[in-house]
Amino acid sequence: MLTGLELYLGGVVLVLGAAFTLLAAIGVVRLPDLYTRMHAASKAGAVGGGLILVAVAVVSQDAAVATRAIIGVAFLLLTTPVSAHLLARASYLSRYKPGSQTLIDELASKNGQNPATE
């Protein structure tokens, strides 16, 4: 049964990646405000997409395909936090307030007379 090992492994990784992507989407629907939703989309989404590309690399058994897939994973892990950060910053600056449950907002006092530094 050792011949099909890469297929079993790739299949498990593929389903795992799809499950993480689905959880990210559920999080985006269920979480209460933009910034908490961003947690779900940036972390679970990046891991889900990355795992699917890893599955492609594992199943293909081809150095050229696997290299491109791994470069794709690296690219995804580099760009996802950048886009999340850009969107979070843009939303904050255009006065999109965090949800009412938010305990502390030290960024709000940034422009006041009391800078939130230690």
Partner: peptide, 15 residues
């Protein structure tokens, strides 16, 4: 944000 996630989902589909 949801559109960004949609792109990742579409990428997963293609994979």
């Amino acid at each position: 944000l949801a559109l960004d996630l949609l792109t990742v989902v579409a990428m997963g589909f293609i994979g």
